[in-house]
C-alpha cells in the first residue's frame, strides 16, 4: 500500500525509490519493500504486522519502541528499516515461548508492573537485554538502565520490583 503514491513523489527532498530487503524478526524472515526513509518501528508495525512495538514519542526519549538488535537494546523509532537488514531483531512478540511467558513477563504481572501497558513492551525489551547481558547487574545500575524509558502510570516502583524479581529468578535458574 502506498507504493504508487510514494513512487510518484517528485519533491526532491525525500528518497522515494523503494528498497527491497529482508528483516529477520524473532527468527522469522520478513521480505519487505519500503522507502529508505521508513523507520524501523513503522516497518515492524506495518509491514511485519507486529504491533507490540509501540511509538510514544518518535524522537528517542520515551523508549516505548525499544527492541533488541544483535544483542543491543535500541530505539526502533530512531533507525531506518533498511539499517536493520540482515540483523537479528527481537521484539516483545518473541519473548514468550509459546504459551510459556518469559520470567520478566511473569514478574511484570505478579508485581503489577503495568497499568495501561503502552510502555510495557519497551521496558520488557530493555530489561530482557540488560539481564541477558549483565545477569549480575546491581540495583543501582539497574535504576540507571531503567531511567532510560518513561512510564506514566505506575510511578516505576513496581517496574523496578518486577525487574529485580526476574533478575533474581533468572540468576537462580542458571
Amino acid at each position: 500500500m502506498g507504493e504508487r503514491a510514494a513512487e510518484g513523489l517528485v519533491t526532491g527532498f525525500v528518497m522515494t525509490e523503494k528498497l527491497a530487503f529482508t528483516l529477520n524478526v524473532n527468527g522469522r524472515d520478513f521480505p519487505v519493500r519500503v522507502e529508505p526513509r521508513r523507520t524501523l518501528a513503522d516497518t515492524i508495525r506495518e509491514e511485519c504486522k507486529l504491533t507490540g512495538t509501540h511509538l510514544g514519542c518518535e524522537h528517542g526519549v520515551c523508549g516505548a519502541c525499544t527492541i533488541i538488535i544483535d544483542g543491543e537494546a535500541v530505539r526502533s523509532c530512531l533507525m531506518f528499516a533498511v539499517q536493520a537488514a540482515g540483523k537479528r531483531i527481537r521484539t516483545v512478540e518473541g519473548l514468550a515461548n509459546g504459551n510459556e511467558l518469559h520470567p520478566l513477563q511473569r514478574a511484570f504481572i505478579a508485581h503489577h508492573g503495568l497499568q495501561c501497558g503502552f510502555c510495557t513492551p519497551g521496558f520488557l525489551m530493555l530489561a530482557v537485554n540488560t539481564l541477558e547481558q549483565q545477569p549480575d547487574i546491581g540495583d543501582e545500575e539497574l535504576l540507571d538502565v531503567l531511567a532510560s524509558n518513561l512510564c506514566r502510570c505506575t510511578g516505576y516502583g513496581n517496574i523496578v520490583k518486577a525487574v529485580k524479581a526476574a533478575r533474581d529468578e533468572m540468576r537462580a535458574g542458571k
Binding site: 508495525r45 504491533t51 511509538l55 516483545v92 511467558l101 504481572i109 503489577h112 503495568l114
Partner: peptide
Amino acid sequence: ERLEDPPLVTGRGRFAGD
C-alpha cells in the same frame, strides 16, 4: 493478578495505532 495483563505483556494489545 489483573485480567488485563496477558495480552499487554505479549505485544497483543490493540491500541488506536494498532
